[in-house]
Nucleic acid binder design. Structure first.
Lengths: 247, 247
DNA sequence: CCGGCCCTCATGTATAGACAAGTCGCGGCG
DNA sequence: CGCCGCGACTTGTCTATACATGAGGGCCGG
């Protein structure tokens, strides 16, 4: 049976067989040839078509399940998924990288730093018991000479005690945390607000200017690590997310 | 060899063996026990540990490669990946679903509709040759009696000719397109703007109120399908993205 | 001492066979 | 006529085996 490899199409691929099956099926789906809800051929039929064993087809279809392109039910067969919602992969670059992408020199300043017990005003921002030790930081990121983004961060010192003594001279708090602390969950809330007086003064913009705000919280195994609010002058910044179904 | 299944830990799982291996290795990585760059045990060693065949371990590690958690090199072994950038999966729900999640009744109105040849002003919004037929729509989405979101859309009629005669009575243009037209690429740009007079009037807000704008363009196999600009009153709406490394 | 060749090792891919677990339908029984 | 049970079908999982591929490291010769 191993000799029947070229069944059905050109054997050109340097890619492996199961990769080719993935690509073929994916092509049929995204082209619309197999619309959402359609049944795709049974494993056995694909085995015949590609002249391979069931394991190979099974592996390919398993990947498509992982990718969310198909769903499978015993006895019934495999079906093209109905997209439930659009999804976009939003890459959260390091701010240094964002600025570098603009071709401008980057620097940041820590403008406020306080170690304290979590107050009630903090509790809405980070999952902590009252009184837990936190590090509160304010930080301003510059692109060239202009303020690019204002950062207001809380770090849970129970989870990251080393942060208490870290000077944050070379790495910004965000970059330092990403490099040091693994996380298992993150939540982002993205919104638009009119700049209040304090924010406007810091960013050098007029009061009321629309600003993009990103609030990010991260956890590791259920324990809050950090919560950060980033405020970008709205007219000057866009978040960009590109997405293809299979990345 | 099949009898040695409980080697090393609780056999509690109803899950399959390769799923348990995935979960275990993932746990070691996200907990920091195996930091980025660390070599994880060879397949053979994991086979011994779990008392299973190499194929089973191979399948588990293959999934972790897909998920981006590890990288593998022949002869050298498998290594925990260094995270390149943070990423968040941003779910773009149907607007009807967003409103339903608020517990409010949903409806929408088409407020403007024009079939025309693409003008120069359109070309910045959608990848088309000048003169190609487009359908320009404006649509207002309501949550209860209050405007929730303003939509300004262009549809490429060369790619989606059926749109020309579609009345968009039951389904909003966005929902209609998602259900009907598969896409292969999407790009989102998210920003904040101060409401101009026209937008403010439509949304029933004050001029200058910060608004969240989402510009989404979709393509199928390189051909532009549609481009849409959604404007949400900023104070009233937050985009939420949750993310866990292995989804 | 340096360079090239080859052996070895780990992963990558694929096979055939086996059994388990849902599930759809048909046929027989009440 | 209706309903239930069983068998058949499809996917899910796993094993044992085999060969290919790529890369590291050591050995041997110049």
């Amino acid at each position: 049976m191993e000799g029947a490899n070229e069944a059905g199409r050109a054997p050109r691929a340097t890619a492996s067989l199961h990769q080719r099956i993935v690509a073929d099926v994916e092509g049929k789906i995204v082209s619309g040839e197999w619309p959402p809800g359609a049944r795709i051929p049974f494993e056995i039929e694909l085995c015949d078509f590609y002249g391979c064993s069931r394991m190979t087809v099974n592996k390919a279809l398993g990947r498509l399940v992982d990718a969310g392109l198909i769903e499978r039910r015993r006895k019934a067969g495999s079906f093209v998924s109905r997209p439930r919602s659009q999804a976009a992969v939003l890459e959260i670059h390091d701010i240094r990288a964002e600025v570098a992408a603009l071709g401008l020199p980057y620097r940041f300043e820590i403008t406020a730093r306080a170690r304290r017990s979590a107050r009630s005003v903090d509790l809405g921002r980070i999952d902590l018991a009252g009184g837990a030790p936190v590090l509160a930081l304010r930080c301003l990121h510059f692109a060239g000479e202009r303020p690019f983004c204002a950062e207001d961060r809380l770090i849970n010192l129970s989870a990251v005690p080393e942060a208490a003594t870290e000077p944050f001279e070379d790495l910004s708090p965000g970059a330092w945390l990403v490099a040091r602390v693994p996380w298992t969950d993150a939540q982002h809330r993205i919104g638009a607000t009119n700049a209040a007086r304090a924010v406007a003064a810091v960013l050098g913009i007029d009061v009321g200017t629309a600003c993009l705000t990103i609030e990010r919280r991260t956890w590791r195994a259920g324990e809050a690590i950090t919560s950060v609010e980033l405020t970008y002058p709205g007219a000057a910044h866009r978040l960009v997310a590109r997405f293809t179904p299979t990345s």
